[in-house]
Each structure stands twice: as structure tokens, then as C-alpha cells.
Design a protein around this nucleic acid. Structure first.
Lengths: 168, 168
DNA sequence: GCCCATTTAGTTGTGCGCAATTGAATTGTG
DNA sequence: CACAATTCAATTGCGCACAACTAAATGGGC
């Protein structure tokens, strides 16, 4: 499979290539679909909290870590300021967080929870079981799936760094 | 679980709940991150073809199925006209597809490949191995992961239908 | 034949996600 | 101290995802 040099040439008799495209469709699409399905369930559940899914992720980090600068927040979530700035502005508008320029380093903006944001955690504590129930997966399956996805993410990230040059 | 009426009260001694929130963070975030990492690699690879990732998915369906109406396309990809209409308009602008109102039923619009769109398949045949290589997963692992994700998607879809009412 | 519910695309508005750019603050170096 | 490189947040622009809505065409019941 990895050693076949020229599967090209014959456009009339190359079922293997089409098969790859089909398989390809399956894997990339499966992940894409699962992500959106997850998102969809979260949307319903989080609506009661007045949060979108990415906003919920930000709140999770803040509940766990307390106050922290936008930069650190972005590292936790793998998001840049282009995504976080408007998102945080919306969270601030709803009164859940406050942003303040650091006095020590005026480049950085520290994000911290308001009383209202802290209080929201109590209601959020019920979210995990509802999501967990919706998946129909038990703890072991979730843990296993998570490990695979994390490994996949690491591999893809590593590949992305070397992918840019030539090939194809 | 469903019968515990008041888990509230003690905010001082509830480590289990925080643990759930932490676990929660892990699973939802893992999927989210994996999806974006995948997307990121596809973006690099597909750039040479002049396609975005969702546009690539549309082309995959067209290469496999041939001409079909927007509605059917949406069923294959689980996308609605709100997403597909502008996307198809862009694909048409780049000359890869053409949209034509059906004569039989003027409500529906049939999407079919141009010669250029058909020709692009040849170049796309190399995409799967590059992606596959980037994952570092072998065929068995990918197949297994895909099966789990599909099962997860089905469960989440089913849950979404019954989720709306009360709970919490 | 006529009305009404349904089907089908398209449009609008909101919110990510990310590349590219801007601008201010800081740090390092001479 | 001065100047260049770096860091950090914000902004702009584009495309996707989805809810809500509009508008046109179809088909069934009467």
C-alpha cells in the first residue's frame, strides 16, 4: 500500500483511488458531523444558562483557573485574540466577566469573573450529566474516546508544522 | 441521579461536582479541538485545490453521486440551505459547479459538476493519503474511531429530539 | 377550479474560527 | 537614552453553521 509507486496512469481501471476518496469522505465527515451534533446538544442545554458553547468553554477555564489574561485563556482553549476578543466582549456585555488592563503590563488584559459569573457555576454543575446522558456512552468509553481524539489532535498539530512546503 | 432532589446547599464540600465539570471540560473540548485540528490540516492541503473544507465535502458528494438537488446534497452532508446556498454560489463563481432550476419542479435547484469540477477530482485523489499520513493512524484505528464517532453522532441526534422540554 | 398546507431555496442576522494587519507597550541591545 | 524587535490585544475580512423568516411552486381536499 505504501510502496505502490504509480497508481496513476489508467483512469479507467483505478477503483482503489475512488475507494480512498470514499473512505476519506467517511473519516473526515464523521468527525465533522460528531462535532456539530455535540454542538447542537450543547446549544439546547446551554441556552438556559444564556451561553454559547465556546462561551461555556471560556467559563469552564475561568471557573477552574480564576482570573487570567487573554493570552493564557487562548493557550488553554487554543484560540487567538481574533476569536476571543469579540467573544469576551459579549460575555462582558451579559455581565459574566470583566476585562481590565493590567497595571503592570498595559499590553495584557486580565479577564475575571463577576459575582454573577461565579454564581453561574452552580447552575452549570448539572450540565455534564445531561450531556453525558445524551451521548449514551459510559465513563470508560468517553475516557477512551477522549484519549484517541487527543492523540489525533497532537498528530495533526505536529503534521501541520511540516505540511506547508511541497508534496503533491 | 434523576431522583436526587437537592444536591445544592453545601457549596463548601462538593468536590464530586467540580470533578464532573473538569471531566466535562475534557471530553467536549477534546472533540472540539480535534475537529479544528483536522480542519486546520485540510485547510493547508486543500488550499492547492482552491477549496475550503466544507466545499471539499460538497465536491466529494458530487464526485460520488453526480448531479443532485440542493435538498439531497443537504441530506448527505446534514446541512441546510442557509449554509449551502452561499457555499454553492461561491463554488459556482469559481466555475466548479453549475446550478439550474429543475424544469419538472421549479422549487428545486439541481447542482452538477462543470468539466472543470470533474477534472478537479484527479488532483483530489491525492488528498486522502496526505491527510491519512498526517493523522499517524492506521486504517484499523481510523475505521474504529469512525465507528465510535458515528455511534456518538446518532446518540446525540436522538437525544436532541427529546432534550428540548424540561429537565434541569 | 380553488384554497391551504407542505416543500424547497434563498435571505438575514448572530456567533464562531482563523488569517492578516494594526497599534500600543515592553524588552533587549548598543 | 535611543532604536529595533517582540509581545499582546484588538480589528478587519472571509467563510461556515444555524435559527428564523420569506417567497415561490407544488399537491391534496373540497
Amino acid at each position: 500500500m505504501t510502496t505502490t509507486p504509480t497508481p496513476s496512469t489508467a483512469a479507467s481501471a483505478a477503483p482503489a483511488a475512488d475507494e480512498y476518496l470514499r473512505l476519506e469522505h467517511q473519516i473526515c465527515f464523521s468527525l465533522h458531523a460528531a462535532s456539530r451534533a455535540f454542538n447542537s446538544v450543547y446549544r439546547v442545554v446551554l441556552k438556559e444558562l444564556g451561553l454559547t458553547y465556546p462561551q461555556y468553554l471560556v467559563m469552564l477555564v475561568l471557573w477552574e483557573q480564576g482570573e487570567l489574561p487573554v493570552k493564557k485563556l487562548g493557550e488553554h482553549l487554543r484560540l487567538d485574540s481574533g476569536t476571543l476578543s469579540p467573544l469576551l466582549k459579549r460575555l462582558e456585555a451579559t455581565g459574566l466577566v470583566r476585562r481590565e488592563r493590567s497595571a503592570r503590563d498595559e499590553r495584557s488584559v486580565h479577564v475575571h469573573l463577576t459575582d454573577e459569573g461565579t454564581a453561574l457555576k452552580e447552575r452549570a454543575l448539572l450540565v455534564p450529566r445531561r450531556i453525558s446522558a445524551a451521548t449514551g456512552f459510559d465513563l470508560a468509553e468517553i475516557t477512551d474516546l477522549r484519549a484517541r481524539l487527543d492523540r489525533l489532535t497532537r498528530a495533526l498539530d505536529a503534521a501541520a508544522l511540516e505540511e506547508t512546503p511541497d508534496c503533491l
